[in-house]
Amino acid sequence: MIPSFKKFNSRFNFAFIDENTKREIRRKLLKAICLPGYQVPYSSPEMPIARGWGTGGLHVTLSVIGKDDVFKIIDQGSDASVNACNLRDFVHRVTHCRVTFDTHAATLIQTRHRIPEEQLNDGQILVFQVPQPEPLRAVERYETKTREMHGEADYARMWVSLYEAFVRYGDIMQGAGYPVMVNGRYIMSPSPIPRWDVPNLHQSDCLYLFGAGREKRLYAIPPHTDVVPLEFDDVKFRIEQFPGIRCSLSGTGGAFMDELYNDLGHFRHVINDSDFLDKLVEHKTRPQQWSNKYLQQVLDEMNANPDLES
């Protein structure tokens, strides 16, 4: 039994980061919320893990977390991968907060590269670990220039690059981290989440916070904010399609799938979100998923062909 966290029984501060730096990060988070999609520079203090391994998400988590929070962390949809386990242990050790795998029970969720399959509600905060916060970096190398482009909402080169991808390859090739327009003003990188998750950023109930530790940037999407994936009138944004594919463990579809390979090179599909899969397999219930038109299309297609084998 671990005693509850008291001020003076530990050799480090509650939630590891010192109070001065927390205040700085908190002020920047408020500014980020006031400017949806805008990247706020921040101090990105030293952490016991290297920058680029989730420090940005950790800074945000540790600056907002309180004693009553229930913490969940996922890495590529899984509660059990190395990055998630180690960061969960760390956050638990420095805050003594309750931790959970249950998406619905969590009040604060840190994530790497996925949004949970289960819909989040207005009492929850989702914190993203972001490797590259600048969506324009592929078309402009210099930070001073991209800042100007954002300031002037000069996104012509971004549109040209999408157009060129279409001309060369017949489609917009961006898979993970599909660029989005937030609140009609800033183009933002949603961190490398699959296209499957991108529509869930639009008009959500929960608050999204993004931390890029190595690049020293914070940004946010408040609830009920317009988030539109970049698309053309005649070339539309699409999510990943899994036509006729069923999860080999739960026998169902309509969720983002992993391909698992065996030694012979054969592969099978498994639902990527581990908590969603657990609930399907163990509790025989399908948790409430997000509602967006792209997912609805997939579910309609699945329900029209219920007999397909995995």
Binding site: I33, C34, V64, G66, L207, P222, P223
Partner: peptide, 11 residues
Amino acid sequence: HFRLIMDSMAR
């Protein structure tokens, strides 16, 4: 208090 301010700012 920060959490409450953030909640009000986000909503």
